[in-house]
């Protein structure tokens, strides 16, 4: 479908600008917060006005914008909670000042398209610009958008990103809604608690998508999204993918998040795959968040380009081949997705 020419990731671990994942940081209070870089080249006053998701999105995209040199044909962002923090900060002002005189700063920053808008400003880009916010599919729908754009405009390149932050408020709402574990979790016992809930995460992943295979990091072969609570639908979707692209998966990158309510989906997918498939996991690295599949895609690129899986990520060692990686994720038990990534 398309090639990834560049990819950058600002995450809770050492991933930016170079990755070193052999040792991991544990969650603090069941949150995996990003390690923010110094943002060299971003004016300080502009930085101060940005929310964390906008900061990390811009931070991850800047090296790509710099390296690309020529113009970028579009900016396509997936974010579920972009703007949430500013929304509630603004709302707090509205209610606490009883709708009195308030400044519009947080309101303007609260729009979900703030990251895509900032990227257009920092790169003076007047082309295609869109923000997909469909919660657990926001990043996948951005990838599908890029794939369509590259079919429509063959000689183009698109900056595609997935970004979400842990804000005080979205953490609180999701915590109330039982999406996070109350008991402390470490990287080591992330998957073995056998309790409901996961650990909150956040990250920004930005990539450059083109039709150019020369020197590409990886190819995104297919992206499938579905909404269901029925395992049979997920199994059927997987069978269709394998029938379409060949049953040649080397690595299954599983979105397991330690929430025992959803293990059955991941087990069902694992069981559909050949016995010699290596099963790896990533949410102990980045935590759980709606666009975590963008971190999975970055991790898949890392695996394909280094031919190495950190030991902590291996659930089951199988084939030692590094050609085809299948990412599967389910968000909150309803939004499922598959992303098939191939070596370039």
């Amino acid at each position: 479908m398309f090639y990834i020419q560049q990819i950058q990731c600002i995450s809770p671990q050492q991933t930016f600008p170079q990755a070193s994942l052999d040792t991991l940081l544990d969650p603090v209070n069941n949150k995996l917060n990003v390690i923010e870089p110094s943002y060299d080249g971003v004016p300080r006053n502009a930085l101060r006005r940005m929310s964390k998701s906008v900061r990390i999105g811009v931070g991850a995209a800047l090296p790509i914008i710099k390296n690309t040199g020529t113009h970028i044909d579009g900016i396509i962002i997936g974010t579920a909670n972009g703007g949430m923090e500013d929304s509630i900060v603004f709302l707090k002002q509205v209610i606490e000042f009883e709708e009195g005189v308030i400044t519009p700063g947080h309101f303007v920053q609260s729009t979900a398209n703030a990251t895509a808008a900032q990227l257009s400003l920092v790169s003076a880009n007047k082309n295609y610009n869109i923000t997909h916010v469909h919660r657990g599919h926001a990043f996948e729908l951005a990838l599908i958008d890029a794939a369509m754009q590259l079919r429509e405009n063959a000689d183009s390149n698109y900056l595609v990103g997935g970004v979400d932050e842990i804000s005080v408020y979205n953490y609180k709402l999701d915590e109330l809604d039982n999406w996070y574990k109350p008991a402390p979790v470490t990287a080591g016992n992330f998957y073995t608690q056998n309790t409901p809930g996961s650990v909150a995460g956040e990250a920004a992943v930005m990539l450059l998508a083109t039709n150019d295979s020369a020197n590409a990091i990886a190819a995104v072969i297919d992206i499938v999204t579905l909404h269901t609570t029925d395992i049979a639908d997920v199994q059927l979707a997987l069978q269709n993918i394998l029938a379409k692209h060949g049953d040649t998966i080397d690595i299954f990158l599983s979105g397991e998040n330690g929430d025992n309510r959803f293990d059955t989906f991941y087990t069902a997918v694992e069981n559909e795959l050949n016995n010699d498939v290596t099963v790896a996991r990533f949410k102990h690295i980045c935590g759980e968040y709606p666009t975590a599949t963008s971190f999975a895609l970055w991790f898949a690129c890392e695996l394909l380009s280094t031919s190495h899986i950190p030991a902590h990520a291996v659930k089951k060692q199988g084939s030692s081949s590094f050609k085809n990686v299948l990412i599967y994720n389910v968000h909150k038990g309803v939004q499922h997705s598959f992303i098939l990534v191939r070596e370039s």
């Binding site: 398209n113 923000t131 997909h132 999204t225 909404h227």
Partner: peptide, 18 residues
């Protein structure tokens, strides 16, 4: 997401905010 469930939609669903 509510409409997906309510109308039993099975195709691609998206939400856009620009």
């Amino acid at each position: 997401l509510y409409m997906q469930k309510h109308y039993q939609l099975r195709g691609l669903i998206n939400t856009i905010n620009t």
